[in-house]
C-alpha cells in the first residue's frame, strides 16, 4: 500500500517545473522558486518595482559607458544649461552634466542600500530570533536596547552617529545601518515568539536539536521572509535618510554625485533652474517607490501559507 506521486515528469522545462511531484531535491527547490516567481509576476505593481530596480542596477553598472561626460569635470562656460539634446537633464552650477552625475550617483545609492541591508538585516534577524526564542533575560535585555534605539527618529540617530564618526559616505552607511536594525529585530522577535511554541519546534527538540541549531535552522527561516519584506519596504526610508544626510552635508561630500547632496546644492538655484533639484529629487522618488512596490509584492511571494 504505497501512495504514488502524480504523473511522470515531462520533457520540457516548463513541464519539469510544473510537474506535480519533484523527483530530486534540485527540482523541488526549482519548483518552489518557480511558484514564487509566478506569484510575483501576477502582481503587476511589484513587477514594475522589480523592473525599475533592475534598470537601476543596469545603469549603475553600464552608466559610465552611456555618457561622454565626466561627472566631476567642471565647465563654467556651460553652467546652468536647461535640458537639451546635448544635456538631456541640463547642467548644474559648475557646468557638469546632470544625467552623468545621476548615473554615477546610482552606484552610490545602490551601494549604500546594499551595505545597509547586509549590515542591518543579519543583526536584526540574529538579535530578534535569539531573543524571541530564548526569552527570559536575553529577551528583556535585547528588547530594552531596541527600545532605546527606537525612541530616536532614525535621521536624528544617524545624525548623532555621523557627528561622532565624522561626515562621509562610509560613516553615513554605518550610521544608517545602526539605526535600521532595531525595528527589524523587533519584527523578527515577534515572529520567533509565534513559532517557539509550535509543534515543529517541539518535534525538533525531541530529535535532540541544540538551541543553536533550533534558532539557526528552524526559527530564522520562519522569520526571514518578513525581515526581507521589511528591509525592502524600509529601503525607501534608508535612501531618503541617506539623501537627507547628504542634503545636510553630513553624508557624501562634494563633489561626489550623491543624489541627496546634488539636491542640496541645487536648492539655491531652484527658482531659476528647477532641473538642478527636480532631477535628483525625481530619481530618489522613483527608486523609493520601486522598493516599496517590490516590498509589497514580496509579501505575496514569500508567504506561501495559503498555497
Amino acid at each position: 500500500m504505497t501512495d504514488l506521486p502524480g504523473s511522470p515528469p515531462q520533457s520540457t522545462l516548463r513541464g519539469w517545473l510544473e510537474a506535480p511531484g519533484a523527483t530530486s531535491p534540485g527540482q523541488a527547490r526549482a519548483q518552489a522558486a518557480w511558484r514564487s516567481w509566478q506569484r510575483l509576476v501576477a502582481n503587476k505593481a511589484a513587477l514594475a518595482g522589480l523592473i525599475v530596480l533592475l534598470a537601476l542596477i543596469f545603469l549603475a553598472v553600464f552608466g559610465p559607458a552611456l555618457t561622454p561626460y565626466d561627472p566631476m569635470a567642471q565647465n563654467l562656460s556651460e553652467r546652468l544649461l536647461p535640458p537639451s539634446g546635448a544635456h538631456p537633464f541640463g547642467t548644474d552650477d559648475l557646468g557638469r552634466d546632470i544625467m552623468t552625475r545621476i548615473l554615477y550617483g546610482a552606484r552610490i545609492t545602490l551601494m549604500m542600500a546594499a551595505l545597509v541591508a547586509v549590515i542591518a538585516g543579519p543583526i536584526g534577524l540574529i538579535v530578534g530570533a535569539t531573543a524571541g526564542y530564548l526569552g527570559g533575560w536575553t529577551d528583556i535585555v535585547a528588547m530594552r536596547v531596541v527600545d532605546i534605539f527606537l525612541s530616536f527618529p532614525s535621521l536624528i540617530l544617524a545624525l548623532a552617529f555621523v557627528a561622532a564618526l565624522g561626515p562621509g559616505i562610509e560613516n553615513a552607511v554605518i550610521a544608517i545601518a545602526l539605526s535600521a536594525w532595531p525595528p527589524i529585530a523587533r519584527l523578527a522577535r515577534a515572529e520567533a515568539l509565534t513559532v517557539r511554541k509550535s509543534d515543529y519546534i517541539a518535534a525538533a527538540r525531541i530529535q535532540g536539536a541544540s538551541r543553536f541549531r533550533l534558532i539557526l535552522r528552524h526559527v530564522m527561516p520562519v522569520c526571514l521572509p518578513s525581515v526581507v519584506i521589511r528591509i525592502t519596504l524600509n529601503m525607501a526610508g534608508i535612501i531618503l535618510t541617506a539623501a537627507g544626510l547628504g542634503f545636510l552635508g553630513l553624508g557624501a561630500q562634494p563633489p561626489s554625485p550623491e543624489w541627496g547632496a546634488m539636491l542640496a546644492s541645487g536648492r539655491q538655484f531652484m527658482l531659476t533652474s528647477w532641473w538642478l533639484a527636480a532631477i535628483p529629487g525625481a530619481a530618489i522618488m522613483v527608486v523609493s517607490l520601486a522598493f516599496n512596490l517590490l516590498g509589497d509584492g514580496l509579501r505575496d511571494v514569500l508567504d506561501p501559507r495559503d498555497d
Binding site: 517541539a202 518535534a203 536539536a209 541544540s210 527561516p221 520562519v222 506561501p304
Partner: peptide, 30 residues
Amino acid sequence: KTVQMVFQDPYGSLHPRRMIRATLAEPLEI
C-alpha cells in the same frame, strides 16, 4: 534515541518551509 513522539496535528508538526528530506535528515545529522 530511545523515546520518540508523534504529535497530534500533522499540519503543525512539520516545519512549513523545509523540504521533507531536510526534516527527515535532521535527526540523522544530529
